[in-house]
Simulated scan of single mutants.
Amino acid sequence: MLPSIPPKYFLPLVGLAVSAFVFNTSEFMPIALLTDISDSFGKTPAETGIMITAYAWVVGLMSLPLMLAACRMEPKRLLLAVLALFAAGQIGSGLATSFAMLMAARVAVACAHAIFWSITAPFATRLVTREHQPFALSCVATGSAIAMIFGLPIGRVIGLALGWRMTFFCIAGVTLCALLYLGRVFPRLPQGGAPFSPRDLPALVKNPFVFGNFVLAVTFATSYFTIYSYIEPYLGTVAGFSPEAITTTLVALGVFGFFGSVVFSHAYGTHRRFCLLTGGVGVTVCALLYTGAAALAPALVAVCLVLGMISTLFNVTMQAELLRSTSRAGAPVATSIYSGLFNVGIGGGTALGSFVAGAGHLPSIGLVGAAIAAVTAAYTIFAYLPAVRKYH
């Protein structure tokens, strides 16, 4: 049991968790409302879907340059500015009178997203003592997990009842509340030494833990999203799940994502190697079971739930690894590169899943994901863990 955290530290963590909730909800919201958005602008879902791809690639491409430009700002001012840009992008999305305007607003949101996920983990851990850092990271991860459980379904209900524009307005409203709340409770954090410079990048990347983290980000995200991006048609057409059963399974997957953050907060400090191994090895095993489990519904549901837990556990573990391996000034930049590469992996996994499904091999998509996850496992075992033993 962790010692109690003073309210002056816990209250800002609540604000960061709420912010993580709205950022994650917003990222995937267009997926749930794609048909309605397409109808509004006289386009097909395939034509409108470019806004989802563009969002991911803007985050991937802009994370590092935006963080380098913003790293000299005082932390609290930077956090509030990012939330303000995010809220403005949501309002712009709701007011868009053309698809081009909607795309421009989503690009603004993606830029805010790129910076937010670069600074959230470093800021959360700076709010607390070292012994509470796993708890601080798990708070942020909990906000993300809750978005997967409740954010998307609630957003879809609002969009269907009141129109898709109202969903974006609601996200903007929650964001503005979070901005005002954090403006009140978030402390002013010291800069902590000289600001990060582009000249420091080569040394940062040469750090074996940082470089290894980047490799694992790409391979893990590619393997996981090869499977996850097509989990709905897999459950429906291969496993024969009803629409209601698919919805229940996806919600339960999000719930188990929350359990992943709980496992991290209790295990990372004393069982670091277990947390590191779970990502590559866990997804490899689950992906291999994914195909065979399609014939037995309870087994397939169990595999999906474990995958959801592993995803959150891996993400938070990798952020913790970056924070312990970089300086205070370098941590946001390293996290921004990680976030960008993870989004590259998301795009790669989604594209690979689309290719596999389009070629008529959807029943074998788990085997494809397993092959890539095996790369994550091998790198962790033969490269990353030996560095842990050598330097830590």
Rank of each mutant, 00 (worst) to 15 (best):
F225M: 11
F258N: 01
I115S: 01
G349W: 00
I158P: 10
T335M: 15
A245H: 08
L300T: 01
F28A: 12
M29H: 05
G366E: 04
S354Y: 07
A56P: 02
A383E: 09
C286V: 04
C139E: 03
G257H: 04
A17H: 03
S339Y: 03
V356E: 01
V22Q: 07
L189S: 12
I5T: 12
Q133K: 14
V301M: 15
G366R: 01
H361I: 00
D36K: 06
E131K: 12
M73E: 11
P3N: 07
A108D: 07
H392F: 12
Y224A: 12
N315F: 03
V255Y: 10
F23Q: 00
L33D: 01
L216S: 08
K43R: 14
R328M: 13
G269R: 04
Y234K: 08
V285P: 09
Y338E: 07
Y230H: 09
V157W: 15
A267T: 08
A124H: 02
P30N: 07
G260E: 01
F314R: 11
S38D: 11
R324F: 07
P75N: 07
L201F: 14
F382C: 13
V22C: 11
W57G: 02
A387V: 04
A371F: 09
A32I: 03
I365N: 10
L322R: 04
I365A: 12
P233C: 02
I171A: 03
A302F: 13
A161Q: 14
Y379T: 00
D39S: 14
G192T: 11
V316W: 03
M1Q: 10
G92N: 13
Y181F: 15
T270A: 14
T142E: 07
H113D: 14
V128H: 06
W164I: 03
A32C: 09
S242I: 04
V218K: 00
T226M: 09
P153R: 03
M101I: 03
Y391G: 00
S223Y: 02
G89K: 01
V107C: 09
F314A: 04
L11T: 10
T125R: 05
S261F: 00
S325L: 04
S229C: 07
G151P: 09
V218Y: 10
I246C: 13
V238C: 08
A245C: 06
F342M: 12
L34R: 05
G92R: 09
F211G: 13
T291R: 14
G330S: 14
N315T: 10
A329D: 12
S327C: 10
P190D: 14
G292W: 11
K43F: 11
R272L: 13
V59R: 02
N207V: 06
N213M: 06
T97K: 12
A124Q: 05
S118W: 02
L61V: 12
E232W: 06
L85V: 10
A178N: 13
L102V: 03
L235C: 10
A194F: 05
